[in-house]
Amino acid sequence: EEEEKKKEEIARLLGVSKEDVERILKKNNLDIEQLLRRVQREN
């Protein structure tokens, strides 16, 4: 699934687990696209 791939990509870029990414998304109330763009910009 596309969303899972995005979570895995974010996890890889941040050096965290996919579960961490899911927690970040919930905690910050971000959607996956916003987080992915933010992470890609910083790297």
Rank of each mutant, 00 (worst) to 15 (best):
E1M: 12
E1Q: 11
E1W: 13
E1I: 12
E1V: 12
E1D: 13
E1A: 13
E1G: 11
E2M: 09
E2Y: 09
E2N: 11
E2V: 09
E2S: 12
E2Q: 10
E2P: 08
E2R: 08
E3F: 14
E3A: 13
E3H: 11
E3L: 14
E3Q: 13
E3R: 14
E3Y: 15
E4Y: 06
E4T: 08
E4V: 07
E4C: 08
E4S: 07
K5E: 09
K5L: 12
K5Q: 11
K5S: 10
K5T: 09
K5M: 12
K6D: 04
K6C: 10
K6T: 08
K6G: 05
K6H: 07
K6Q: 11
K6S: 06
K6R: 07
K7V: 08
K7L: 11
K7T: 04
K7H: 03
K7I: 12
K7R: 06
K7F: 06
K7D: 01
K7N: 01
E8G: 09
E8N: 10
E8Q: 12
E8L: 15
E8V: 11
E8I: 11
E8C: 10
E8K: 10
E8H: 11
E8F: 12
E8R: 11
E9Q: 12
E9T: 13
E9G: 04
E9W: 15
E9D: 06
E9N: 06
I10N: 00
I10W: 02
I10A: 09
I10M: 03
I10C: 15
I10Y: 03
A11L: 01
A11S: 06
A11M: 08
R12H: 06
R12M: 08
R12E: 04
R12W: 07
R12G: 05
R12Q: 06
R12K: 09
R12L: 07
L13N: 02
L13E: 02
L13F: 05
L14S: 01
L14C: 07
L14V: 01
L14N: 00
L14D: 00
L14Q: 00
G15M: 05
G15C: 08
G15I: 01
G15F: 03
G15A: 04
G15V: 02
G15K: 07
V16D: 00
V16H: 01
V16F: 04
V16K: 05
V16W: 06
S17M: 05
S17E: 05
S17K: 09
S17G: 06
S17Y: 03
S17L: 06
S17Q: 07
K18M: 10
K18W: 05
K18A: 06
K18F: 06
K18P: 07
K18Q: 05
E19G: 09
E19W: 09
E19I: 10
E19Q: 13
E19S: 11
E19Y: 09
E19T: 10
D20T: 14
D20V: 15
D20E: 15
V21G: 00
V21M: 02
V21R: 00
V21W: 01
V21Q: 00
V21K: 00
V21I: 08
E22F: 02
E22D: 12
E22S: 05
E22H: 04
E22I: 07
E22W: 03
R23Y: 12
R23M: 13
R23L: 13
R23V: 12
R23P: 02
R23F: 10
I24F: 09
I24Y: 12
I24R: 03
I24P: 00
I24L: 12
I24T: 03
I24M: 11
I24A: 03
L25V: 05
L25N: 00
L25C: 09
L25G: 01
L25P: 00
K26M: 13
K26T: 10
K26A: 13
K26R: 14
K26G: 04
K26Y: 09
K26N: 07
K26D: 07
K27V: 14
K27I: 14
K27Y: 11
K27P: 01
K27T: 13
K27C: 13
K27A: 14
N28C: 15
N28I: 10
N28Q: 12
N28W: 15
N28L: 15
N29F: 07
N29A: 07
N29C: 09
N29Q: 08
N29I: 04
N29G: 13
N29K: 11
N29E: 06
L30V: 08
L30M: 13
L30H: 03
L30T: 05
L30N: 05
L30K: 02
L30R: 03
L30W: 14
D31K: 07
D31G: 10
D31Y: 03
I32Y: 04
I32A: 14
I32L: 14
I32W: 04
I32M: 05
I32S: 06
I32H: 02
I32V: 15
I32N: 01
I32R: 01
I32G: 02
E33F: 05
E33R: 04
E33Y: 06
Q34K: 07
Q34T: 15
Q34R: 07
Q34E: 15
L35H: 01
L35S: 00
L35M: 05
L35N: 00
L35Q: 01
L35Y: 03
L36Q: 02
L36R: 04
L36D: 01
L36S: 02
R37D: 14
R37Y: 04
R37L: 13
R37A: 14
R37F: 04
R37P: 01
R38S: 10
R38M: 15
R38I: 15
V39I: 14
V39W: 03
V39N: 02
V39K: 02
V39T: 05
V39P: 02
Q40S: 08
Q40I: 12
Q40K: 10
Q40L: 12
Q40N: 07
Q40T: 10
Q40D: 04
R41G: 13
R41F: 09
R41T: 11
R41E: 14
R41V: 08
R41M: 14
R41W: 07
E42I: 10
E42A: 10
E42P: 08
E42C: 15
E42L: 10
E42V: 09
E42D: 10
N43K: 11
N43F: 13
N43R: 12
N43P: 09
N43W: 08
